[in-house]
Simulated scan of single mutants.
Amino acid sequence: MNKILILFVASLALFSCKRSSKADIILPRSTGNTNEILVVMKSADWHGKPGDEIRTVFGEHQVGLPQPETLLSVNQIDHSGFSKFIKNNKAILLFQKADSTGISIERDKDARPQIVIKATYGDELDLTNLIKTRGKEIIQLFKDEDIKFTQSIFRKERIDASKFKTVENLGIDIIIPERYKLVQDTLNNFLWMRHHLMSGIARGDGSNNLLIYSLPLGDETKVADNITSVRDSIGEIFIPGSREGMYMITEQAYTPFTYETTLDGKKAYETRGKWEVKNDFMAGPFLNYTIVDKKNNRLVVFEGFTYAPSVNKRDFLFELEAIAKSLKIK
């Protein structure tokens, strides 16, 4: 009887082991900052042509920022040093020699959340060409993962945005973290919220701001061309300066960059540029998403702008991008 019981328990344990999955494994929390990746590559390649290609592709500057800042911050380590806690980095680009050239993705391999992009190649020429041809795709994969990661954090500390008249009237849902405080919410469907920066040189004076409003659709072919004039008129009405005659406008010495994109599955335009206060010295970067909502014959606009003198602003604007991309039209 005892033997039968032992065999039954052993079989049950074996069955349980087979049923266990990676999701059941408790992984450590990943390390590393947003917009930062770890490149695992042979030091000889890093100091040669492949490394030069990485610095060229990954060193591209984010448009619309007052000071030059790269799309991603890149750190490199040789395979010999890639072990233990270093494998817990949340964003890893791992280069390995193989019979074929390409990229593959693995998530939550050694930590959570984590994305590991494995890039395989045959020789140095293959490696250099891989970076040149698929570098932008790799960058976007890392950026998209950071957006999801940032939104997951904001989701835990989100405010009830439905209490704002503009959000309710526009019939939208959006994840806004509680650090943002109300500045203005009008019956004209205009919402302005602000987060006072609490660290760094910009502490006290610095702020991250988000605006949400809507406009009639009009001629769809002219939407992109009118983004600058629309935001200037909004600035004149709603974003005043410290004295009369001062208000936020698009910086006249810098032409914004506008790209067609999608947001909430709808056609949209992403515009990045610099703002300034007319007749004053305040300025900074902005990010504008103008969504074509054909169903309701309107444009829904999300804009984020940052005022953070004397500090880098890439990550502040990225936070606003993550909020914008959480917007859903009901």
Rank of each mutant, 00 (worst) to 15 (best):
F82T: 03
R243I: 09
L93G: 04
Q114D: 08
K42P: 08
V116C: 07
V40A: 04
I175T: 02
L94I: 03
K42E: 14
E145N: 12
V301C: 11
I172M: 02
K328T: 07
I86C: 03
V39C: 10
G81W: 05
P256W: 09
R203G: 00
D99I: 11
E303N: 06
M282T: 02
V311K: 01
S100M: 13
N75R: 15
Y247E: 04
G48Q: 13
V74W: 07
K313C: 04
D126Q: 06
D144H: 10
T70Y: 10
R179I: 08
H195S: 10
I239F: 11
L317F: 04
T34G: 02
I239E: 06
T128F: 05
E319D: 09
G241Y: 11
S152Y: 08
S152H: 11
F302P: 05
K156H: 04
H61N: 13
L38P: 05
N89S: 12
E244V: 14
L12N: 05
E124L: 06
D45L: 14
D225Q: 15
G265T: 09
K163F: 07
G245D: 05
M193F: 04
G48V: 10
D232S: 11
I212K: 06
V9A: 15
L317Y: 03
R19K: 15
K136S: 12
I138D: 01
R194L: 09
N209L: 02
S30R: 10
V230P: 01
K278I: 03
D160Q: 12
F286R: 05
E270W: 07
I138V: 15
A44V: 14
S152N: 14
T70D: 09
W46M: 11
L94D: 01
V167T: 01
K278W: 05
I115V: 15
I239D: 06
K295T: 11
F281P: 01
K181I: 10
I201P: 00
I237F: 14
N288K: 06
F142R: 06
R155C: 03
I86K: 13
I115E: 03
D24W: 10
L210N: 00
G171F: 04
H61L: 14
F316S: 03
F82L: 12
E124P: 00
L125H: 11
N33C: 08
F154T: 00
D264M: 09
T306G: 07
N297A: 07
Q114L: 10
V39S: 08
G48I: 11
L187R: 08
